[in-house]
Every structure is written in structure tokens, then in C-alpha cells.
Design a binder for these strands. Structure first.
Lengths: 351, 351
DNA sequence: ATTGGCACTCTTCCGGCTGGAGTGCTAATT
DNA sequence: AATTAGCACTCCAGCCGGAAGAGTGCCAAT
């Protein structure tokens, strides 16, 4: 789908723009009459019909049946979003809500929840925010507790106050004292580093000459390795306002709705999609079937990655029907991402 | 609603039973003709009509309109469930699934999830399981870590490997060493006791003569108090198979469905309802509006409390449309509760 | 190149009709 | 006295046909 804009003259594009905007606001197929009156370009319905026939040939719009108006296709929306759309700034009230909600410093996971709820509430659609990637958070404290048999409970704290825990299986039995010593050792050398750094360092230690370490140190390193191995796949997200989606007539089909909600609970597909979105910096939009997931066939997803310290750590967005007010949602998601990123920035956290 | 069974002769009751069973299996209003053929009692349609008129006068059944059959009212279902129902034992396959799913010893919270999913999957409705009440679990380890300012991160482990954490605000700044000492002190005296016991003991200490304690001990006790105060309200549950509910025609109304799913996400009402159910030991049933929550108006909830060491610690159940196969669901929920209770019993946990 | 006009298509809505299902009542039967 | 057969009645669901409305496509005029 290279830019079709070139295949079309200015007038056709303006017409498409007017049509999409009209359809988004009214939700009904729009005919030549209304466009004739509505749009700034003074054209007769007949002319508009001719232009619309061209647009239909290009696959940008289509009509549900002979005597209905036209509605945009996915390609039509895409062209609209890419080249025609004029974003509207948020109004003061919305901005204020966002700003207030995301300025109080709090537990990061609470903040994620707040962001998700704000997205849902202010857009009347569903909001989604991924948890910040673990890799990039910094290790603050680690500690081991003995469980029965050869299992060890690892507790580690990241950033200010986020606690994670995991059970690892060791190949020998450790006493509480040994474990405490291992924790102290790891704290002394890795505290303050990012998890990614820690993992890399641990791997390096294990590959390097191990002669210079005593057994206790080696055990500690091994346990650290078990703790931090392949935890990266365990991404997650916080969803809010799913039920808002039940109000939209375009999602009224019970089957579509079920598929969508199933995707929400199984999470996997949604995570993949959000992962994709995270790769592209800034605002990213998936319209209808573009996402590639059937569950999202009649939905659009507007996302933006959010960053802490200029490093992308997560992504947030809004899920709604394909027919959504992109010109408002896009800046909205953009601003929310920036505010969330700023709010999560530890450097500016009050003591 | 004292037992109306006395107001009715045996025949009427059998008729009601047949009617309810028929309606549950077919989902359509049942008329006198089908009952005449269907039921064991050999009666002509005319006689059945007379009896049905009586049942309607008593408010046990009603007809949606003149020329439709009858469907049970909530009272009718209630009478059926209380006095008429003949429970069907689970079949071997279902029992096996439950047994296998709940016999592997695992993290308690995983087990809760498995139970919920099994309930949903095998009943094709929604499953719900509350987390075991914290009060009754036993404290295994507690520890404090300093955060910025006067905030302290408390980490405590219960049972085998469940980790909880909470941030408390203290009235003075503690060093890491002081906090470690406090943790060690609390571990030495409270480790192995139930949280309820710990809370009671802590309160007693604070009220008693404090002369015999040094400052460090007092600080430790105070922090324990902050940690365990009023945490009991923080109950939670795990839901599964919500989307199964979208298939039922009786819940097809968008508004009902939205209310129901809103209740699921806000949790509060559901928790209250489950709390009620937990008070009554054994299987408890809420039919339609009986629950008192509008969101559940067209649903029934079949629950059973589950116990560890003969002490009720939680409740689980199935949520579905009022028209559900109670005779199968009831024993099913009952068995699941017993299996879950047994699986959670630490005494029988393999080392 | 644009526009007015016109025939055509398709949906939606409404009223009326019909068949079926089920009831309530009454009178007959056991 | 309880049960049953018979019958008139009601109500719903489905179907048909017609009318109204919306919008198109095409052709001829500007």
C-alpha cells in the first residue's frame, strides 16, 4: 500500500477526508447529498458520486448495498490517518485530569493502573498499559530464603519498592545462613545495576575462569543466574474499561465480542501486538484487520511507547471500534505516554 | 418463603419438578402437552393445566404471554432446588479431570487459578475461587527493608512460599541494620504462628506494660502492627471463563452483560456476595435476584466453602444463567471444594 | 469537466394475514 | 369429586406486499 495519495488529486483526497470524518461522527454510510452540503468544496452530488466511484475503484471506500452511502475501508482509514488527518489538541479539562492523575508519585504498578483507567475513562473505550520492561529496572536488593527440599525462594526489589519473587530449584541444599551470605554478596556487587546488566555480568562470571572465586561466591552467582534467566518473556499489561467496548454497535456481534474478550483474558495475542507496537517509537496505529489477529478485526488500536530516561520501557494505548475519533485519540495517547514516562522517571522522584 | 411444599400435594410437586427439569434442558416455555407425554405421571393435558394454574397462583411458575407454556419463577427454582432436586453424581471423566488438576502440589495461588479454570471449563460457565483467607495462614518469615524517607518495605512469607509485601510509613527513620534486627526479633517470636494470632499478640504487647521491652523491641512490634492491621478486607478472587457467559441467550441483553462484567472488574459486589456464601458451610445457592445485586439478576451462583484443617478459608463457585443444570452443578461445586481444600492442606504436602 | 434529471435498486417499515401453540372454561365422563 | 375431552379464544412468529426513502449510475445538457 504505497502512498495512494499520489494517484489522486487534491479534490478526491479532500472528499475522502470529509467522508471519513463524517462517517466517524455519524456512524452511518454517507451519501453524495450530505457531502455536497457538508464539505467546504462546493460540488454537486453528481460530481461527488463520480469521485466516490473512483475512490471505490481504488478500494478506499465501499458501500454496504446499492442504495446506501459509502463507508471507509481499512485502506481508506489508513490513508486518512497517514495523510489527511488533522489532529485536535486535547482540551484543558482532559489534560488536567491526565496531569493530576499521573503526577502523584506512587508505586509504579499503581501508576500503570491509573494510566490505564484514565485512558479508558476519558476515551470511553478500553485502555491498556504494559508493565515496564523488567530488563531496564534497577536492582535494589536481593535475598534468598530456604524452602523445603532443594527449593529456594528468591525475593528481589527493583526501583523504589517493587517486589518480585520466584522459586528456584538448586542442585544442593543450602542453609539459611549460607543463603543470607549469598544474598549479601550479590547485593554488594550488583545493587544499583539494571537487571539486564546483572544478567550479562552473571553469565560472564560463569563463563570466565572460575578459579578466583570461592565456592560460596560461585553458588551465589549460580542462584542469580537461575533467578534472572529468561524472565523477559513474562511481560504483562493492565487493561481497563473493557466493558466500554460492549456499548459499540460495530462490536455488537456476540461472537466478535467473545473473541475479543477471550484475547483479553488469554493475553498472549495482545502482548504480541503490543510488543510490535513497542518496537516503533511514538504513536502507532493498527486499523481493523491490520493487526493480524482475528479478535481485533473490527477494532483499532492506537498505541504509543513510553520511555524512562530516553529508553523505551513499555507501551500504552487505546482499543476501540475501527470507527473512532483518531484525531482526538492520537494526541491523547501521545500525551498520556509522555506523562506516564515522566511520572515513572526515578530521577525526578521526590525523596 | 417457608416451605411451600406443604401447601401442595405430591402430584403438584412432581409436576413442578418435571416442568423445571424440562425447562432447564430445553430452554423454552413448557406447555401442558409436553408435560403430559413427558412426565411419568400419566395425566391429560387438561388436568395438567389445572395444576399449573394452581402453581401459577402460588407464584412458582409464570407464563411470558397467553399462548406460551410456563417457566419457573425464582421461587419455583428455589422450591425445586430445596426439595425436589435429585443430584446426579459426576461422571468419571469429569471427576478425573478435577482430581488430576488439583492433586499436583503447587503454589497455592496457582492452585486457585487451576480450580477456577476447571470449574469454568467443565461447566461451560464462569468459575470463581476466592484466595484463602490470610488470617489463617501461618507466618514463616518477615523482613523489613528501608525505602526513602520514612517508608519501610515489609516482606513476609506465609505457608510454604507465598510472598506478600506492603509499604508502611513509620514515624521515624530506621537504618538497614535496625530494620534487620527488628525482623530477626519478630521472626524469633512469631514465626510459625497464624497471622490472626500474630495480630492479636502484637496488640496485646502494645497494650500491656511496655516497660519490660527495650526501644528496639517496641519499634519492631509497632512495625508488625502496621503491617498486619486491617489487611483482612483485602480479599480477592480469581475468575475464569467469563466469556462463556456471553453465549447464553438469557444474558444476551447488552445492558445486563455490561453490568455483570462491570461487577467482575470492580470486584466489590462479588466479594460481598462470596463473603456471605462463605458464612454458610457447604453448598450455597443464590438464584436470580436473591443475591440482592442487580448485576446478578439473571444469574445463579452455586458456591461451596472450602476448608483447610477443618477451618473454612475460602469459597468457590460457578456463575451461570438462572436456567442451569443445578443437579449437576451442585455436586460438581461440592466435590471441587473438597478437592481444593485437600490439595491446599499443608499437612499432606509432600516435602 | 461539471451538473441536472431520471430511472433503478435496495432497505426499512408497516399492516394484514395465517398457522401454530397453548390456554381457560365448560360440559361430559369415570 | 376428580379427571378429561372439546372448543373458543388469545397471542406470537413468520410471511407477504406495498409504500416511502435514500442513494446510486448513467445520460444528456451546460
Amino acid at each position: 500500500m504505497s502512498d495512494r495519495a499520489k494517484d489522486l488529486n487534491e479534490r478526491s483526497l479532500q472528499l475522502l477526508k470529509a467522508l471519513v470524518e463524517r462517517y466517524i461522527s455519524d456512524g452511518q454510510p454517507v451519501g453524495s447529498r450530505v457531502l455536497s452540503k457538508d464539505s467546504a468544496l462546493n460540488l454537486s452530488p453528481a460530481t461527488i458520486r463520480n469521485v466516490m466511484a473512483d475512490l471505490e475503484d481504488l478500494g478506499l471506500i465501499h458501500s454496504p448495498h446499492t442504495s446506501a452511502g459509502r463507508i471507509p475501508t481499512v485502506s481508506g482509514y489508513r490513508l486518512f490517518v497517514n495523510s489527511l488527518l488533522t489532529v485536535k489538541p486535547l482540551n484543558a479539562k482532559e489534560l488536567m485530569r491526565l496531569y493530576q492523575g499521573l503526577s502523584e508519585r506512587d508505586d509504579a504498578s499503581n501508576m500503570i493502573g491509573v494510566a490505564s483507567r484514565l485512558l479508558a475513562e476519558l476515551t470511553k473505550m478500553a485502555g491498556v498499559v504494559t508493565l515496564p520492561r523488567r530488563e531496564l529496572v534497577c536492582l535494589r536488593h536481593i535475598e534468598f530464603l530456604p524452602l523445603s527440599h532443594k527449593r529456594v525462594l528468591v525475593i528481589f526489589v527493583t526501583n523504589e519498592q517493587e517486589v518480585h519473587n520466584k522459586v528456584i530449584h538448586t542442585d544442593k541444599v543450602f542453609s539459611a545462613a549460607e543463603l543470607q551470605q549469598a544474598g549479601a554478596y550479590l547485593n554488594s556487587i550488583y545493587c544499583g545495576h539494571s537487571l539486564a546488566t546483572v544478567r550479562a555480568a552473571v553469565l560472564k562470571e560463569l563463563q570466565d575462569d572460575q578459579e578466583r572465586m570461592n565456592q560460596a561466591m560461585l553458588d551465589a552467582i549460580k542462584m542469580a543466574q537461575l533467578t534472572f534467566e529468561s524472565d523477559s518473556g513474562k511481560d504483562d499489561y493492565v487493561l481497563a474499561g473493557q466493558t466500554n467496548l460492549m456499548g459499540f454497535s460495530e462490536l455488537s456481534d456476540r461472537d466478535h465480542l467473545k473473541k475479543l474478550f477471550d484475547a483479553f483474558t488469554h493475553k498472549q495475542d495482545v502482548i504480541h501486538l503490543l510488543d510490535q507496537a513497542m518496537k516503533a517509537e511514538g504513536v502507532q496505529i493498527f486499523i481493523g484487520e491490520e493487526s493480524g489477529y482475528q479478535a481485533f478485526d473490527h477494532c483499532s488500536l492506537v498505541t504509543s511507547s513510553y520511555s524512562v530516561n530516553d529508553e523505551v520501557v513499555g507501551v500504552l494505548g487505546v482499543i476501540g471500534p475501527t470507527r473512532m475519533a483518531y484525531e482526538k485519540i492520537i494526541p491523547f495517547v501521545d500525551v498520556t505516554a509522555k506523562l506516564l514516562g515522566a511520572a515513572l522517571n526515578p530521577k525526578t522522584t521526590a525523596p
